[in-house]
Design a protein around this nucleic acid. Structure first.
Length: 293
DNA sequence: CGGGCGGCCTGGAGGC
DNA sequence: TGCCTCCAGGCCGCCC
């Protein structure tokens, strides 16, 4: 398959963690955090997507991590007291264990003699929230989340229901967190390319066969990326350098370049304020869509 | 009511 | 070389 290999550190704008990278961080934290006790906490004092609640944060001193989970692109660090740290990496965040201090370290959980747990985020689109036990079920960020793409909850029947009767372009629909979680701009583009569906296709124009193919494409693209991410877990646990997964990108960032599947050239357009890449030959507007215009 | 888009933020790239 | 502008993204919230 003539895809290009792009090392994610080579493209600054591809640094943003999508679901596979959050999953990778989650797996790394699952292996290392449980049992560790917070001895002190320091912060940069800078505002993330929400201001850091220092008072709540400081109550976590002497608390102990017991469990790590992921839902959508959120990480849940559960503590023995019943409190949960809710962490979102935004588009440039990282959560890792390292001794050294670096620029853009915003929250540092010191863990006694162990390497501290560091939340680093240059662009500060990330989030560190302290949730009391009962707040998890009412947290506005969590209540309306859609299905996890890598579970059976994302299936043909579900996607058909969501596509029914809406003119929303299919790309916007699959990026909508209330429908499917964890699909950012890169994987939305890549999934639609693999499914040979034009990103602007109104969702209601997709036929059942196309929806089946798209469902498979989303799962395929994401699970491959998770596997790639999984191979570099040790980097996350180690230096904090690198550790970004390698990903084969067929269309994202490749405008003007040759399509790997046909003689077409990848184009770039904008949808809902986002760069949208596709092959105009592989991904033709479907008949019902163009017939209406 | 649903969809589009502004705003939050930094730093890399490209233009002058 | 240095400054200035543009652009990238997730996601909430506002507005039409």
């Amino acid at each position: 398959m003539p895809c290009i290999d792009v090392h994610i550190t080579d493209i600054y704008y591809a640094l943003m963690p999508e679901l596979p990278e959050v999953e990778t961080v989650c797996l790394a934290m699952k292996k290392t955090l449980p049992g560790k006790r917070i001895t002190s906490i320091s912060t940069s004092g800078k505002r993330l997507r929400e201001p850091i609640d220092e008072i709540r944060l400081n109550k976590l001193i002497n608390d102990k991590f017991i469990e790590v989970k992921r839902r959508a692109k959120y990480l849940f660090l559960h503590l023995a007291s019943g409190t949960t740290l809710l962490i979102h990496l935004g588009m440039s965040g990282n959560l890792l264990l390292r001794k050294s201090r670096e620029k853009h370290d915003h929250v540092i959980f010191h863990l006694g003699q162990e390497r501290p747990l560091v939340f680093n985020d240059p662009r500060r689109f990330g989030m560190v929230l302290v949730l009391e036990k009962n707040e998890i079920h009412t947290c506005s960020y969590l209540v309306n989340l859609g299905v996890e793409p890598l579970t059976p909850k994302l299936n043909k029947r579900y996607l058909m229901k969501k596509c029914h009767g809406t003119n929303t372009p299919i790309k916007n629909l699959i990026m909508n967190n209330k429908v499917i979680v964890g699909i950012g701009n890169i994987y939305a583009n890549e999934s639609l390319f693999q499914a040979k569906i034009h990103p602007k296709t109104p969702a209601r124009h997709l036929n059942p066969a196309e929806i089946t193919i798209l469902t498979r494409a989303i799962k395929n693209v994401l699970s491959k990326a998770v596997k790639k991410g999984g191979t570099t877990i040790n980097d996350y646990l180690g230096s904090g350098e690198g550790g970004r997964f390698q990903q084969k990108l067929s269309v994202y960032g490749r405008n003007g370049q040759a399509c790997g599947k046909c003689s077409g050239t990848i184009v770039n357009t904008r949808m809902a304020g986002r760069s949208t890449f596709y092959c105009p030959l592989c991904q033709r507007p479907n008949k019902s869509a163009s017939a209406e215009k």
